[in-house]
Design a protein around this nucleic acid. Structure first.
Lengths: 243, 243
DNA sequence: GAGTGGTCTAGACCACACG
DNA sequence: GTGTGGTCTAGACCACTCC
C-alpha cells in the first residue's frame, strides 16, 4: 500500500492520459480535489507536485492547475529507464544479444574518481537491436560486492528487474553524461556504421538507495537512432530552485 | 522576500558548497534543523526536498540525510540555462556573433504541432564561440506577440535576462529534444567542421508561466564540443513517481 | 469579494535503522 | 527503545486572478 498522495497522483495521471482531463483545461481546484479524494489539502498538493515534476500540469497562482500536452518522453534517459522497460513501453520489437560476460574490474579512471578499493566487477557486453537493426552497444560493469553472479540468461533480459525483484536491490539515482565520440573499429562493425565513425556515448554511474556505487555503464548509440527528450523547469536565481 | 523553505534550501546549499557539510556525512536531523531554523518540520522537509531534486543530498529512512558529491553539472541543459548564464558560471571566454536578425514566422511543422495561428516571430541566428573556436549555432524564433522588437545589441548579450528583467516575462519550462543529424553546408562552414558532417541538434520549445508558447530554438553543436550531464532519480513502477 | 494556489504550523502516527 | 525520515491532518494567513 503506497502513500495516498502517490495513489492520487497515479489516478490523476491515468485520467489525464485517458482524456478525462483535456490538455488546456483545468483540473478541479485543490479544495475540490480535497473533497473528491477525502484527504487534506497538503496531501493533494503533494500529488499535484508529482504531476508538476512529470511535466503533466502547470499550476498558475490565482487560476488553477492546467493540463499540459506535448510532454512525450520517447527516450527518457533522464529517468534511468532501461532498454528493456522502454521496449515494453514503446512496443518495438527489440532483441538483446550478449557478446561478452566475464569477471573484470572497474576501469581505473572510474574507481579513482569514486575512491573505490573493491573494484571487482562483472563485465557484460550487449548488442541491442530493433527490427534487426543494431541500435546500441551496452557495456556494463556491475560490482561483485552486490551481484556476485550473473548468468547469460539474465543478461539477455532486464538486468534491472533482476536486481530489483530477485536480489531486492534498491536502485535509486544515477549521473549520466552524453557526449559524441569516435568509435572503435569493433563498435563501428557491431553497429554497422557506414557513413560516420561517430557514436553517441551515454556514460552512467548508478547508485543504490544507501548511496553506495553499484554499476558503471557505457552505452554507444548509433547517432542516427539516438533521441533524448527532456522536460525542464527553469531554475530561479540566487540559490533558488525549481518549483 | 522569498519563502522560508527556499531560504533554508539556499543556506544549506551554500554550506554544502562551502564545505561546512562534507560529502558522505549527514546533515543535522530534521528535528535538529527544525530547532536551528526555528520553523516547523514540514518547512524543513520542503527545503530538503529541494536539495534532493538538485542531487545534493540523499535521504535514507531511519538514518538521515547524507551529503552527495560528484554531481557536477558542467552543461546543464536540463535546467534551461542559457549560453550566457553558462558563460558566467563556467568562467570561459565566450563570444556571440549575430549572423541574422529579421522578421519571420515559426516553421510550419512547429506551428501545426502546437496549433498556433499567430506565428509572427523574430528570427535570430547566432554563432557562439569559446576561445575563438565556434561551438554552436543558435537559431531562435521568438514570438512577436510577446517580444515585438529585438535589437542586435540585445541578441549579442543574454536574451533571457532581457526577457526577464527588461520585459518582465516569466519563463518557466521547456521541452527539449537532443538528436544527432547531418548538418547543412552552411552550418558545416560556420562551425568549421572537417572530419564529419554530423552535429548535435538541441531543439527547445519554451513556455511562459501562464503556459503560453513563447520561443523555438534550434541549437546545432559541434559534436566534439558537446557534453550533457544529468542527474536522474529512478521512477517507481505502476504510475509511481520520482521522490 | 470570492476563488485560486503558495506557504506555514503543531501535532500525530508509522516504518525503518541501530544498538 | 530511541532516533531517524515518510506521511497525513486541520487549520491558518497570504498573494494572485477575475468579476
Amino acid at each position: 500500500m503506497s502513500a495516498k498522495y502517490l495513489q492520487i497522483a497515479a489516478d490523476l495521471t491515468k485520467k489525464i492520459e485517458q482524456g478525462s482531463y483535456i490538455p488546456g483545461s483545468f483540473l478541479p481546484s485543490e479544495p475540490n480535489l480535497t473533497a473528491l479524494y477525502h484527504v487534506s489539502r497538503e496531501t493533494i498538493r503533494k500529488a499535484l507536485n508529482e504531476l508538476m515534476l512529470a511535466g503533466l500540469i502547470q499550476k498558475i497562482k490565482g487560476k488553477g492547475s492546467i493540463v499540459l500536452s506535448n510532454a512525450r518522453f520517447s527516450f527518457p534517459i533522464s529517468n534511468i529507464t532501461s532498454f528493456d522497460e522502454l521496449n515494453q513501453q514503446e512496443q518495438m520489437h527489440a532483441t538483446t544479444r550478449v557478446l561478452a560476460l566475464h569477471d573484470s574490474h572497474l576501469p581505473i579512471n572510474i574507481s579513482q574518481e569514486l575512491n573505490l578499493t573493491d573494484t571487482a566487477a562483472t563485465y557484460i557486453g550487449r548488442l541491442r537491436s530493433v527490427n534487426h537493426e543494431p541500435i546500441v552497444i551496452d557495456e556494463d560493469y556491475i560490482l561483485k560486492k552486490y551481484v556476485p553472479q550473473l548468468s547469460k540468461q539474465v543478461a539477455e533480459n532486464s538486468l534491472y528487474s533482476y536486481f530489483e525483484q530477485e536480489l531486492g536491490l534498491a536502485i535509486d539515482y544515477a549521473t549520466k553524461a552524453i557526449t559524441v565520440e569516435p568509435a572503435s573499429n569493433k563498435i563501428i562493425n557491431q553497429l554497422q556504421l557506414t557513413d560516420t565513425n561517430l557514436v553517441v556515448v551515454v556514460r552512467s554511474l548508478t547508485y543504490l538507495k544507501d548511496t553506495s556505487f553499484f554499476q558503471y555503464t557505457v552505452a554507444s548509440h548509433r547517432p542516427d537512432k539516438f533521441k533524448f527528450i527532456d522536460f525542464a523547469r527553469r531554475k530561479t536565481e540566487h540559490g533558488g530552485f525549481i518549483l
